[in-house]
Each structure stands twice: as structure tokens, then as C-alpha cells.
Design a protein around this nucleic acid. Sequence first.
DNA 1: GTCTATATAACGATAGAC
DNA 2: GTCTATCGTTATATAGAC
Lengths: 199, 199
Amino acid sequence: MNDPTPSPAASADDRRNAIIEATVESFGRLGYYGTSLQRIATEVGLTKAGVLHYVGSKEGLLDLALTETYDQQTVDIMAAMVTEERPLIAEMWRKVVAVNAARPALVHMFSTLSAEALDPAHPAHDYFARREHDTVANALNINWRVPDGVNVEHLLQAGFSMMDGLQLRWLRSPGRDLAAMWADCEDALMPLPLWEGYR
Amino acid sequence: MNDPTPSPAASADDRRNAIIEATVESFGRLGYYGTSLQRIATEVGLTKAGVLHYVGSKEGLLDLALTETYDQQTVDIMAAMVTEERPLIAEMWRKVVAVNAARPALVHMFSTLSAEALDPAHPAHDYFARREHDTVANALNINWRVPDGVNVEHLLQAGFSMMDGLQLRWLRSPGRDLAAMWADCEDALMPLPLWEGYR
DNA sequence: GTCTATATAACGATAGAC
DNA sequence: GTCTATCGTTATATAGAC
């Protein structure tokens, strides 16, 4: 009530969301280096200066896309597993797959930036290094139910690696179902009858 | 003898090799979009125009690095397996790992371009799409020795995906041994005693 | 909050001298 | 085979008007 400024064309929140959406798509398709402020600006109907008003600098786009967007949607999965008594690794992975299958643009961005950020000089290098470490470390704190003789750490490393590689294949094959592709991987990684009752 | 042109600073072949080396490193660290002709030129001691004399255009750098360099070193592995009577999948993968462990710069380039080229508009998109398909298709033509009940196609998809993801982790962890990391993955993907005698 | 205008630099590519 | 010079375009970022 009694807003001192005249109504803008869109609310600041809408602008931010539009910038995020355009950024996620552009980072996925062109990477950080391949993305220009002009591209984002054109996409959301602003000028470069207009976009910079929201994000400060090009690196601000990274923060917006990774910390503020990708991370927020991902934390919950592992949090849900902690509450279970003796959870199944296969079930966690199926949950991850279900979440990612519904957000291809974010997975695309993650995959592209993840490779680009192998370079220690990349502005997102530390983010991805820390994230990779935390993913396995967090999973190792859970008392998974697995068949006798299974090395949980090796299994987690193998499974998460497989998922990263599979997502690349998924993004390259238009129309394919990530969950179905992962089901085949699960069959290979956790073969029956050894994993009967454990997946 | 009686060379009509004055001796250049380096032979044309040396120039080409230097350009290839600089290109592979730059594509790996910065991707195709992040790489500039000026960067390559500086690295090999030429001007932009000098580099263009060798490669024609920026896309020529891609050809040089992928078709002419990466591919040449990779074909032999599968060719060696075809000669065997009933080869082991695990042995093929160990050979791939041994080759890749010795060429981190090429693996880095492959990983970065592979993600960047998910975009259908990327100049290397078709190369990677075809390559991914051919890798599995070629492997499926071989009469592998596997335990009863193993689905070879699922296993190959799972294993190659795992290798792609593992290589990203390897490139992010300075000093780690790819072969050792893969050995852990093999334990998870081909667990004993089921795979006793088959790996 | 969004714009225009500008600064400064880099981009890929070509023409043409040597 | 390698250079200089240049074209036309684009890049990130800032200043300041409105």
C-alpha cells in the first residue's frame, strides 16, 4: 500500500526468476564461458545493464544458478533417507533419478558446468569439488542395508559415477526415459539374486 | 636438397603438433567456446593469422583435435579384442583405463567437449552422438564371456557410463590413480564370487 | 528499476605485403 | 609460411540520466 515507485513491467521476483531460467538454459547449452550477459538480457527483455542490476556481475549468475537454485532442490533427498532406520541405497538412487528426470534443464546445466569446472581456474571449480566430496561423505554416514560382503564406499563411488555418465547419455538422447535407463543400470550394478531383498 | 623456400623457424609438422597440443589443452580447460585463436597462437608462437593458415577456421581446430588426434589413439583397443576367441569385458575396460590414464589431457578435452556438445547446435554434437552409439554397438558385436544370466547390453551401458563419470572424478582429484579408482568400480560392478573366472 | 552511452578490450576472419 | 592491418562484431562493466 502506497508503493512509492511506479509499477514496473514485472515484479522484481518475476525478473529474478526469468533471469534464473534463462541462465540455467544458457549455462547448460553454452557453458559459463559461452554465455553472454547480452544473451540473458535479450531472453528476459532487458538490457545488459538491466541484468547487471540484479546479479552484479557475470559470476553472480553462477551463484544464482548453483547455490540459489540447483542446491535448494537437491538437499531434501538425502535428508529424507536419514530418517529411515536402515534405508536402501537403490531407493535413494531411484529418488535422485525421479527428481532429475523432472528437471532436465538443471541437469544439463550441472553436467556442462561440472566438466567446464574441472579447470581449477574456473569460477565454479571449488563448488563442484566440494559438492562431489560431500555427496559421497554424506551417504557414507548412513547405515545402509546391503548384502554381506558389499563395500559400501566402492558401491557409492561406482553408482554416483554411473549416474553422472548416464545423465550425459540421457541428455544426448531426446525423448528417452531416465528412470528406465537407470533401471537397466541398477540391474547391472545390483544383480539378482545377490541383491534380492536389498533393492 | 635445394629447398626453394628459406628454412622456417620450425617444420610444418612441428607446427601442427604444437597447435594440436595447445588446442587439446585449451579445449579441455576452457571448452570450444572458451578457446580463442589468439590463445592457441600465443601458445605456439604465431599470430592468429598464422594459426588460421594451418587450420582454416576455428572449427578446423576441432577436426584436428578429435578426428585426427583423439580417434587415432582409440581405435586399436577394440580392434585388439576382436581377435580374441571369447574375451572378457573387464579386460577391455582395463585396457581402456590403461590408455586413458596415460593421456589425461586428451581425456580432459573429451570430457569437456562431450558435455558442451550435448547442445545439438554445437559443432561437435554429431561427432559425440555417433561416437557414443558406435562404442556400445561395436562392443555388442563381440562374443564376450560372461556369467549366466548377465545382460551384456545393460552391462556395457552401465560400465561405459560409469567410466565417463569416473574420469570426471579422476580429473578433479589431482594425483589419484585412474586404474586404482577403476579397480574399485570393477569390484562393485562385477562382484565376486559371481564374476569369479570372468574378470 | 531500467535505460542510453561509453570505455576498453577481445573475438573470428580476411586481404595483401613480404 | 608468417606477418601487419583491418573489418565488423561482440564482450564485461561503469556512469549517469530518468
